[in-house]
């Protein structure tokens, strides 16, 4: 048994070396950008790399911004492990969040049950949006990648309308719905930062998805379908089911991410509050290579870059958007077969 473990560790390290190289390239990009753009690169770099770790406020906010990324990353990973693409995260988070907000307000008298129902309703709505794309692919082989994106775009617009129209809270200057009752808000973890106990739910979600994928029959069948659907079909697995189900679950997780953003951070559906979260969730899943356990470090890395950029912006003379440049460099290289296999020994079967 021990011998097996050792055999597993080495290839993992080698696979990791490629990712590490990419992280190093990204970090050198930070240094290069500071040298070019900043009058005081030393200071900028100091704040960039150490800022997020120095105060409770920055550290808490960094962790908080990782939460929706974790949910989104899990959602995308699940879909990708089954061989499906979910490109509709933006609409699914936003839609899920709105339904959760509204249901919470209506179900408030039910107490904790109401909260659970509201989260479930929001997540299921988002799940249905993604699941529909899965259904279309199963039924007529319509590209789920394009349809999930189209549906998401339409949903974004409709939700915008609903927030600005029928459900607008006229009492604030924001374009937003009413806030959820205070009793439903998750407690803060590191005040004055935005971090809430939603973090724990995110960790629970990671563990749940990990267990589902690797410890249950359904998760096993899902992965087999994704790895080689001809083999899965040959083995007697109902491969059609594993087009719709993973897409539904993927949307469900995105929706949960939206719901917890409401419960932990925003307390109301604010117009376009979740813009970019869907895409970033996708990015996190790609960096994590669709492994649930790797979603946490990937989300933290993504959040760290953003927090570092924010800290450097506040205390030095660069702007926050350098984060996007650094992230995009990671993105550019993360799927490169050439770079990732640079360190892998060519696998030659014995």
């Amino acid at each position: 048994m021990l011998e097996n473990k050792n055999k597993k560790v080495l290839p993992t390290l080698r696979e990791g070396a490629g990712s590490l190289l990419i992280v190093l390239i990204a970090l050198s990009a930070v240094i290069a950008l500071s040298l070019i753009l900043s009058k005081n690169p030393g200071k900028t770099l100091g704040y960039f790399f150490l800022g997020p770790l120095q105060s409770r406020y920055y550290f808490g906010n960094m962790l908080n911004s990782a939460i929706p990324l974790i949910f989104g990353g899990l959602g995308v990973s699940l879909a990708m492990q089954s061989g499906n693409f979910n490109l509709g995260g933006e609409g699914q988070i936003y839609g899920g969040a709105l339904i959760t907000t509204l249901c919470t307000i209506y179900f408030a008298p039910l107490g904790i049950v109401g909260a659970l129902l509201a989260l479930f309703a929001g997540a299921s709505t988002a799940g249905a949006l993604a699941g529909f794309s899965g259904f279309l692919r199963m039924k007529w082989n319509t590209s789920e990648l394009i349809t999930s994106f189209l549906i998401s775009n339409a949903v974004l617009l409709v939700v915008n309308y609903l927030i600005a129209g029928p459900f607008l809270d006229p009492s604030t200057s924001l374009i937003a719905t009413r806030k959820i009752p205070e009793t439903f808000r998750l407690s803060a973890l590191l005040p004055p930062s935005n971090l809430s106990t939603a973090l724990f739910f995110a960790l629970v979600a990671v563990i749940t998805v990990h267990i589902y994928l690797y410890k249950t029959k359904s998760g096993y069948e899902l992965r087999m379908t994704g790895l080689n659907s001809r083999f899965a079909k040959y083995g007697g697995i109902n491969t059609k089911k594993f087009i719709v189900l993973p897409m539904f679950l993927s949307g469900f997780l995105y929706g949960l991410g939206g719901g917890f953003a409401i419960y932990g951070t925003y307390f109301a559906s604010i117009k376009e509050f979740s813009a970019g979260m869907g895409w970033n969730g996708l990015a996190v899943a790609l960096i994590a290579k669709n492994k649930p356990s790797a979603v946490i470090p990937a989300a933290l890395f993504f959040a760290y870059i953003e927090a570092g950029a924010r800290s450097a912006m506040l205390h030095s003379d660069v702007t926050f958007e350098i984060a996007a440049i650094v992230q995009s460099i990671v993105f550019f290289l993360i799927s490169s077969e050439v770079l990732l296999t640079l360190f892998e020994k060519k696998r030659r079967p014995a």
Binding site: F85, L282, E321, I322, A324, Q327, S328, I329, F331, F332
Partner: peptide
């Protein structure tokens, strides 16, 4: 570099918005 066109495409979008 044999990357996934979908992912590099997203990278370009992110890069442009930052740059």
């Amino acid at each position: 570099l044999k990357s996934n066109v979908f992912i590099t495409g997203l990278a370009v979008n992110l890069f442009a918005s930052g740059l």
